[in-house]
Amino acid sequence: MRILAYGVAGWLILAGAYGMVRSRNLVHVTVCLSVAQSGTYVLLLAIGYQWGAPAPVFSPGSPIKLPVVDSVVQSLAFTDIVVSATVTALLLALAIQIHKTHRTLDPDELQSLKG
């Protein structure tokens, strides 16, 4: 169990990167990048986890007491997700423009620079 969460994080990063390397479609590359980024969320949340501890949100009516899971890495994961979403939007916009200019989304056919 100790290894599993970190292993999943590393596997997601490598699987996403491998998908990007052998991709034949730029939209697929963007999705693979999202998969690789999910690995960083899993890694952050795994570092902050504590067995039996609830979420670090003391909603009205719930007791205010430790332990809770680590809120610092949750906040970092949250920033990570927002940045990932914005990067995805930009990459998809680029894919649209590349398709308009080159009539293809296959990265292997984008070898030559065109004006």
Partner: peptide, 27 residues
């Protein structure tokens, strides 16, 4: 540190700071 352990020094400080600012949602 081992997965799921109870050593989270940043967590302890962050929760104390959040409660000092009267914020229920620590995140």
């Amino acid at each position: 540190p081992p997965f799921g352990g109870d050593q989270h020094p940043y967590r302890d400080r962050a929760v104390a700071a959040a409660l000092h600012q009267a914020t229920a949602n620590v995140v």
